[in-house]
């Protein structure tokens, strides 16, 4: 608006300048009048022109001054907002820290004591069910904290160094964690050719822990059969976790890896596990997707595929 107003006055000044030139040409060149007789008219137009130009410049200067003030105010505002955001970030980190340390400690005690009771052969079967229920709830709370922490770690990129790791050892570690997470379930893991090296970091264990956990969670039977198949795709390894669980319907296949989506089945979760899997695998430059174990019949189990690029690929 301010510059629009100044522009209006500048245009007026140009108009006067043109009029002045026209008058000069008309009087001196066309009507052959002497310059002396033309001079008062020229002075008149000239004076108006100069006044207009000066006025327009002062107007522009004032507008520039205002603009500078606006700019300073904007900078102050941005600075204040940045400070507020930094404070908000610190507060959120504080709560996350509190959650990951203090609540993790409390969960450790709850789960640990329940676990020791579950190991006691004198505990009755009816009591065992109650204990497993309490243990599962505490475990769920722990998993939420763990996943949130891992996502924060990935975002901060602290302490992550890729190195060569054996898939066999990664699977063993993940399997140990899964076995400990589901007391009372019989979980059998078959792996055809696990003897490959992956160029990854420690977070790879979480990928397979989440995939194997999901396979157990979504298998309604007490006994769980999980197969891991490895394929060489040239520049990358494809590792497939195959289960015989309730499967993933076609309409949600693309949604399961998204944040806060979860399958509307009888098993609860925060939907962070598969999102974490995708986030970690994407960092390695790999892909994740899910398909039916038996093509066209999702109810007979799923195949969760992960690709990991080979070193230097």
């Amino acid at each position: 608006m301010a510059y629009g107003a100044s522009l209006k006055w500048i245009l007026l000044a140009v108009l006067f300048l043109l009029t002045l030139v026209y008058e000069l040409v008309r009087h001196v060149l066309l009507e052959r009048q002497s310059l002396e007789s033309t001079l008062p008219g020229l002075v008149f137009y000239g004076a108006i022109l100069i006044s207009l130009v000066l006025w327009a410049f002062s107007k522009i200067e004032k507008q520039e001054e205002k603009l500078r003030e606006y700019s300073k105010e904007l900078e102050r505002h941005v600075e204040e907002r940045t400070k507020e955001l930094r404070e908000a970030k610190n507060t959120s980190e504080f709560y996350l820290d509190l959650m990951s340390h203090d609540i993790a400690n409390a969960n450790t005690v709850v789960m640990g004591l329940l676990d020791t009771l579950l190991m006691d052969p004198e505990v009755k079967e009816s009591q065992r069910e109650t204990l497993v229920g309490a243990y599962t709830a505490a475990k769920r709370s722990t998993n939420i904290i763990k996943n949130v922490k891992k996502l924060q770690l990935i975002q901060s990129e602290e302490g992550i160094t890729p190195e060569e790791k054996k898939l066999k050892e990664i699977l063993q570690e993940a399997y140990g964690m899964v076995e400990a997470s589901f007391p009372g379930r019989r979980i059998r893991l078959h792996c055809a050719s696990p003897d490959v090296m992956l160029y990854v970091d420690d977070l790879i264990v979480d990928v397979f822990f989440n995939l194997l956990s999901n396979a157990v969670k979504y298998t309604p039977s007490h006994d769980v059969e999980i197969e891991v198949a490895v394929s060489d795709l040239g520049r990358e390894w494809k590792i497939s976790v195959i289960d015989r669980g309730v499967g993933v319907p076609d309409e949600v296949k693309n949604l399961v890896f998204k944040r806060f989506e979860r399958l509307t089945m009888d098993v609860k979760g925060l939907g962070l596990g598969l999102h974490l899997v995708k986030t970690i695998v994407s960092r390695y430059g790999g892909r994740v997707w899910v398909e039916d174990r038996i093509k066209g019949d999702h109810r007979r189990g799923s195949v969760f595929n992960v690709t990991i690029p080979k070193e230097g690929a």
Binding site: T108, M111, D115, G176, M177, A180
Partner: peptide, 12 residues
């Protein structure tokens, strides 16, 4: 060992 600890894992 990462907390929270799992008893079986800790014993192993």
């Amino acid at each position: 060992v990462e907390k929270p600890l799992l008893v079986k894992a800790l014993i192993r």
